[in-house]
Amino acid sequence: MSAPVLEIADLSVRYRTPKGPAFAVDSIGFNLMPRERLGLVGESGSGKSTTVLALMRMIRPPGEISARHMRLEGRDVLALSTEELRRTRFARMSLVPQGAMSSLNPVLTIGAQFADLFAAHGQKSDTARIAKLLARVGLPAHVSSRFPHELSGGMKQRVCIALAIALTPAVILADEPTSALDVVVQKQVLATLGRVQQEIGAAIILIGHDMALMAHFVDRIGVMYAGRLVETGPVKSVFAAPKHPYTKMLIGALPSLTEKRAFQGIPGVPPSLTDRPPGCPFQTRCPAADARCRAEAPALRQVGAAHDAACHFAEAA
C-alpha cells in the first residue's frame, strides 16, 4: 500500500475575538490516499471551508493555524517558507473555489489567467497548452480570448477546474464547486471534475453540504460538526450504518423516493465557537445525550472497518 498523499493530525484554526478564541476548526485529523476521493460534509459554519483554507495555508489574521503535523507528500506544509509555499500552491495542491462566478479576474482574459499561473511557476505557456486544458473540461479553445463576464457560471467553474489541473497537482481541494450552479449544470461540472481528477491521478477533497450529491462522488466521507470531525468512513458503510447521531439525523433528513413522509430537520443550532460547553458539542441537539455527554467530550475512535466516530454510544448504534 502506498503512502498517504496528505496526512493531517490535530489541525486547528483559531480566530482571536474579543470574546476569546473561536475554534473554527478543532483538532481534526485524517489521511488522504493517492487518487482517493474524500468528501467533507456539514452545515454552514461547521468548518469545512476553513479546513480547505487552512490546508492551503491561506487563513488571514486574526486567524491562526496549528497542527501536530500537516504533511503534503511527506513535506510539512506548516514548515514551508513563504516562497516554498507559493511554489507548492497549485503545483502540488490546487483549489477549485466556491464562488466560481467571482473567482476570475474581471479585467484579464481567461488565457491571461492561465499564463499567469504558468509564469508564477516558471513554466512556459502557449496557446496549444491552454487549448488542451480547456478541451479537457469540455470548453472550446476560443474561451481563452474571452473575459470572465462573457462566460456562463458553468463555463467559469470549468475554467477554474482547468486551472486547478493545469500543473497536475497531487491533491485538488474543491470547496463546494457546484453550489452556485443549477442542478443540471451541477451534475455535469461534478462529472467533469471527477473525470479530470482520475486522468491526472490526483486525490480530491470535496466540500459540500449536499449529502446525496456527495454520496455519488466520493469514496470516503467525513462529517463535520462545530469544527470537529465527528464521523468518517467509507461512503457505503457510513450511509448504511451511521454511528454518530448527527450523521444519522443528516441521512434521515434526506428525502426518500419510495416513502412519502414529512421532511425531517435537525432541531436546534450548533454551539457557539467561542463559548464552548464541556462535553460533546452535539449534546444540546442529541436525543441520546446523558450525563456523560455533558461532562466528557467523546474522542474519534474506530467503530468499524476504516470507520471512525466520535460518540460515546457509537458501539451501541
Binding site: 492551503m56 507559493r86 500552491r89 490546487s94 473555489p97 467571482s102 474581471p106 511557476h121
Partner: peptide
C-alpha cells in the same frame, strides 16, 4: 474571490 484564487494559484 479573485484575489483569493490568485493567492491560491501561487
Amino acid at each position: 474571490d479573485y484575489i483569493m484564487l490568485a493567492e491560491a494559484k501561487g
